[in-house]
Design a protein around this nucleic acid. Structure first.
Ligand SMILES: Nc1ncnc2c1ncn2[C@@H]1O[C@H](COP(=O)(O)O)[C@@H](O)[C@H]1O
Ligand SMILES: [Zn+2]
Length: 839
DNA sequence: GTTCTAGAAC
DNA sequence: GTTCTAGAAC
């Protein structure tokens, strides 16, 4: 390839030019070139493994560094610079920016997306606007956001071109593990990325990194791998108009080509400004291997993409569960032997997958659709449809290959493989099922048999592979998720005889259960010690290791061995908290009038449940009925709310507000200082499981009624935080939304069930319910619903486990931890500031 | 859902 | 002996 005569100084942006001409990475600054930053600086990288978990790189810089020594010209030429910081959360972008802002506030403007909107997170557009404004006002501008991908940077480069600004990239190439550690430890982060949610998020982001390249249009690219590098970068960009703090003793030009490598890191926090010597040192030769820098813990196993073995022991606890993506490889369900229509199936796959990825984004989950042959019909269809839908290729891949040999033949690390099984979960039958049972060895059959004997169409069963399984040893697969799809083949049992309404529903269920089983396993793994993940069958807690999921309550009656239930180990009990101290705090709105409530007795008109208990071992017949709630009926007490909702006029003394669709009352047994109920007035609607899109108007109405009251409470007491939502399985009839202050400071909160019903995923936030119905048409089932109310007591803020209710109460009384970031992000917490509250 | 209380856990 | 939970009865 001919060399472009400008080499890496070439300004052309046309990609064709870059394809036609080579641009040698070594550049030679002319002795008279005013300075490094003014010219084009390119740092070449020689791959040998890097901090983002793949390769390290050795940076070489050839250039005349004379300019680096003369502070004058550098200062002068450094104007009209748009500096894009590129780095993971925790890489030190903001620290760098803040330091630069402190040292040269007259010259620089920091634009930080996390706080651009009056101290809150804003948009890229806002950043662009602000950047343009500041540049036009004569400032240099730092863009303090991650800027990891070409796309994320593109518009800033376009802006720079448009207004003829220089655009520099400053890459903070700090190892992922360091970033994670920092992100986990920090508190009060502007962007809220901190604590236990940080590892997955940071890992996921690390995977998306696309290194800034000149071809994008950068005037300069500078990479920092050590604290010293960062200091150096600081020196380069530091523009102190008051006078230069830096050591000027070494202002003779030192010219000549210097091959550069980094030196040991020093603390960025130190106020040491670079001397010219420092700068020369920066480009003097050092061997990375011999240096003690951030990277010396990396022990990479060659040939692996992103497995647990990627990192050294020191870091295994973080990386083992969150190393990059967690991947599920899955075959097409029901389309071969069960003869499901391919077009319909492909639509369902991409639809369910994209909804799933949307819902679980942030967990670092990846789905890989696998088919044996490159030219297979399903592969082509799924590929086309997922591309057309714009699904992100990092999260959703379509590949041809043997699903049991993904690592060895495709270098794809998949811990989870879905199996299109038969209803008896037996090996054989040809196709994927035979291949997987075969590859996994008899351990899979044994582990599967231990759990269930049969599987219903539209459901999934997760089975951890024994550590001795060849599939685990050779391919790194830790779990098989068995799935049974609908059968359209008259030659096979349970043929749906062309009923694609039911068939499609079941196929959706099948994929949805498969994906959820995957997600739930990944989520539960993140709490487990490493050895339980890498050796799945050693897991004591079988409920973490396998999950059976059913889409509807009908199929929920499908039972799972109780022996599999998580053993709940209690810790020792300390002294009990005095009940009286709880009583002294009035539990909000509790009111004597409630105690006068008369129950109308059971006057239920609703049809009986009609849910047949399906015993294990029976072939599951798909059902066409849609009623899925199982709110108990018949007992008088279950009707109390219903009576109020249907006859609010009889209960005027207790209704706080009555509209045509809903009634607001105080909870008779408040579980927090503020605890109201918004009762729907719709007869026959008892549970969120019965909700469909036709109920959306009602849900919005109930939510806005709730908001009215919350706002009023917040006016009274700015410190309160609220959630509004539904119990997944309410005990009382009549759909009702809880409005709860998050203090849980009430004597009526007495037991584990109370606590878990408001703090586990048993509590479904109104906003989330509405979103699920809008997107999926119904509320999505949770994995392992039965254990939600009996699981251990955890503080709703810091998630620490508490041994019993009195201790829990004592703990939450003083726990100051922020609420889990997920709740904030999803907008489930409503507070005075409303920073992350509902719309 | 709550109340009540036996007996497990401490 | 006291505290706490869980399950039966309502
Ligand atoms: N008679 C009643 N009047 C008002 N609230 C009640 C009454 N009985 C129970 N509750 C509350 O209604 C809620 C029903 O819970 P759930 O059915 O699980 O959503 C609980 O918070 C109870 O405290
Ligand atoms: Zn806490």
């Amino acid at each position: 390839m001919p060399e472009c005569r400008y080499g890496s100084l070439c300004h052309r942006k046309n990609p064709e030019h870059w394809l036609k001409f080579s641009h040698p990475r070594t550049i030679h600054f002319q002795a008279d070139s005013s300075n490094l930053l003014h010219g084009r600086l390119h740092i070449s990288c020689t791959s040998y493994g890097d901090s983002y978990g793949h390769r390290k790189r050795m940076y070489k810089l050839n250039g005349d560094v004379s300019s680096l020594q003369s502070t004058g010209p550098m200062t002068e030429s450094l104007n009209n610079v748009l500096l894009l910081l590129v780095g993971l959360p925790g890489s030190g972008k903001s620290t760098f920016c803040n330091k630069l802002m402190q040292s040269s506030p007259q010259k620089w403007k920091r634009i930080c997306q996390d706080i651009i909107s009056n101290g809150k997170r804003g948009t890229k557009d806002q950043c662009l606007k602000e950047a343009e404004k500041a540049l036009c006002q004569g400032f240099n501008v730092m863009i303090d956001r991650c800027n990891l991908t070409i796309k994320q940077r593109q518009e800033f480069l376009q802006l720079a071109t448009r207004i003829s600004a220089q655009v520099h990239a400053l890459i903070l190439d700090i190892p992922v593990k360091i970033c994670i550690q920092r992100a986990m430890q920090r508190i009060g982060h502007e962007g809220g990325l901190e604590g236990k949610h940080a590892p997955a998020a940071v890992q996921r982001m690390a995977q998306t990194l696309e290194r800034p390249a000149e071809v994008e249009g950068f005037t300069s690219i500078f990479t920092c791998c050590t604290a010293d590098d960062i200091e150096r970068a600081f020196c380069m960009y530091h523009l102190d108009t008051q006078g230069d703090h830096r050591n000027n003793d070494n202002d003779k030009n030192v010219s000549g080509n210097v091959t550069g490598e980094r030196v040991c890191g020093t603390s960025l926090g130190s106020n040491k400004y670079c001397t010219h010597d420092d700068i020369r040192k920066a480009f003097s030769t050092h061997q990375l291997d011999t240096q003690q820098d951030y990277r010396n813990n990396d022990k990479r196993v060659p040939g692996k993409l992103n497995s647990e073995t990627e990192y050294g022991d020191n870091f295994s606890s973080i990386n083992s569960s969150d190393a990059g993506f967690r991947t599920l490889a899955f075959p097409s369900i029901s389309t071969s032997d069960f003869q499901f229509d391919h077009e319909k199936a492909a639509d369902i796959i991409v639809d369910v997958a994209s909804n799933f990825l949307q819902e679980f984004k942030g967990l670092g989950l990846r789905l890989v659709f696998v088919d044996l042959k490159e030219n297979s019909d399903m592969l082509t269809r799924v590929r086309q449809k997922s591309t057309a839908l714009g699904m992100r290729s990092e999260e959703f891949m379509v590949i041809a290959g043997d699903i049991t040999k993904l690592r060895s033949s495709s270098k794809l690390e998949c811990s989870f493989i879905a199996n299109a099984t038969n209803w008896r979960l037996r090996p054989g039958g040809g196709g994927v099922n035979a291949a997987i049972f075969n590859a996994a060895g008899e351990g899979l059959e044994i582990e599967t048999k231990k759990r269930v004997k049969t599987l219903a169409p539209g459901s999934a069963l997760t089975v951890p592979l024994p550590a001795s399984s060849p599939l685990y040893m050779n391919e790194g697969v830790t779990h098989i998720i068995h799935v049974l799809g609908p059968n359209m083949n008259p030659q096979r049992p349970n043929c749906l005889q062309g009923n694609y309404v039911e068939g499609s529903k079941l196929l959706r269920d099948a994929y949805s259960c498969m994906f959820r089983a995957f997600a739930s396993c990944v989520e539960s793994q993140s709490d487990q010690p490493v050895n339980q993940i890498t050796n799945p069958c050693k897991s004591k807690d079988k409920q973490n290791a396998f999950t059976i999921l059913m889409q509807s309550a009908k199929r929920k009656s499908w039972t799972v061995d109780n022996s599999m239930k998580a053993k709940h180990h209690r810790q020792t009990t300390g002294q009990q908290e005095a009940e009286s101290s709880m009583k002294s705090i009035s539990a909000g709105e509790s009111d004597d009038t409630f105690h006068k409530l008369e129950l109308d007795g059971a006057k239920s008109t609703a049809e009986s449940q009609g849910r047949s208990i399906i015993s294990k071992g029976e072939i599951q017949r798909p059902s066409l009925s849609t009623g899925v709630s199982k709110v108990k009926q018949g007992d008088a007490w279950t009707e109390a709310l219903r009576n109020i909702a249907l006859h609010p006029e009889h209960y005027q003394n207790m209704t706080l507000k009555v509209t045509d669709q809903a009634v607001v009352i105080n909870d008779k047994f408040p579980k927090a200082r503020k605890h109201l109920l918004v009762l729907s007035r719709m007869d026959g609607l008892d549970s969120i499981k019965d909700l469909r899109s036709s109920h959306l108007a009602l849900l919005y109405h109930m939510q806005s009624l709730g908001m009215e009251f919350v706002q009023a409470f917040l006016k009274e007491d700015i410190s309160l935080v609220f959630r509004m939502g539904y119990h997944l399985d309410p005990s009382m009839r009549q759909l009702h939304m809880h409005i709860m202050s998050q203090d849980f400071d009430s004597p009526s909160l007495k037991n584990k069930k109370h606590w878990n019903s408001f703090t586990s995923t048993f509590f479904r936030d109104s906003k989330g319910v509405i979103e699920e119905i809008e997107k999926m048409g119904r509320v999505q089932p949770v994995d392992d619903e039965s254990s939600l109310l009996t699981m251990e007591l955890r503080c709703h803020r810091c998630r620490s486990v508490q041994p019993n209710i009195p201790r829990l109460k004592k703990h939450i009384h003083t726990c100051q931890q922020p609420f889990p970031a997920g709740l904030l992000q999803k907008g489930f917490l409503i507070m005075a500031d409303n920073e992350n509250g509902k719309k």
